[in-house]
Nucleic acid binder design. Structure first.
Lengths: 150, 150
DNA sequence: CGCAGTTTAGTTGTGTACAACTAAACTGCG
DNA sequence: CGCAGTTTAGTTGTACACAACTAAACTGCG
């Protein structure tokens, strides 16, 4: 059916628009901390792993589904902002460990309220957000699994 | 609770990742037609409005939630590809109408199978895709409505 | 040990996104 | 009519994304 080539029927359009609408909500909140949306995601990963070994660039990439072409300049900017340092691994000099600075660690404390602010700014209930998140996570996993099977 | 600052709990991350995973599925399919994902969305709008007046740049922007900073260079590339022409409105010379060329119209016929290919490539059922799309559309509308109320 | 093949981070080039700005064209009020 | 204010598309600058490539470092097989 040629009717399928209609904008409002496309899942891609729905996802694309929803993702940018959500980014619009985050942007002003994160701008208050001098961060972009992907930079915030990198910091979330680093804050999570505080007791473990600091992740490498490719480790961050595996977590966020981003390659070095995106992460290298992004990390350079986080380093310039004084939030992280990059250190070549002595054991394997191809690897670069990304570590939080004291300022990067301290930033977490100032951002604990961000998830609540976000939920408030979207006008969505906590339950709605949880259902949406879980649906999306399932969909993403399905796509990735299906890709690997080819 | 500081636990909220955990990657997998963030709706932004779920949306961001799902959107890019879906783009990964579309990319090779659209590349076969020499198109990017946003270029395809612009064509969907143009194909839909074939009997009406051709939309202006801002009309396309309203439909896709994109501004001239994004659309102007994108349309320039579609024009270079021979798929659209841009024409200053004689009645109001600020406006630029975006029209399909015969090649742009013909492309639709060659792309009728794309939605089916996509559904196949995601490994999701038609029902899953419909539910996802409707959930996302609802969420996006909620965010936009909430923003206007401020 | 030696070296082909792989892994890793970074660079380059293209194409979005979006904020801030510009310039041209229109509108309406006095 | 005249011009302040608005609308419209385009430009500039910054920051992702991602493909393709590069160079350095490691690995394992012969």
């Amino acid at each position: 059916m040629t009717d399928d080539l209609v904008l409002r029927r496309q899942v891609c359009f729905a996802l694309y628009t929803a993702s940018r609408a959500m980014a619009d909500v985050y942007r002003p909140i994160l701008a208050g901390f001098g961060l972009t949306y992907p930079q915030y995601l990198v910091l979330l990963v680093l804050w999570e792993g505080e007791q473990e070994q600091p992740p490498t660039v490719s480790g961050l990439g595996a977590r966020l589904q981003l390659d070095s072409g995106t992460l290298s300049p992004l990390l350079k900017r986080l380093e310039a902002a004084g939030l992280v340092v990059r250190r070549r691994s002595p054991a394997d000099e191809r690897r670069v460990a990304v570590e939080l600075t004291p300022a990067g660690r301290a930033l977490r404390g100032r951002m604990v309220d961000v998830p609540r602010q976000l939920a408030q700014a979207t006008g969505l209930s906590a339950d709605d957000l949880v259902v949406l998140r879980d649906t999306l996570t399932r969909i993403t996993r399905t796509i990735h699994q299906h890709k690997e099977q080819q």
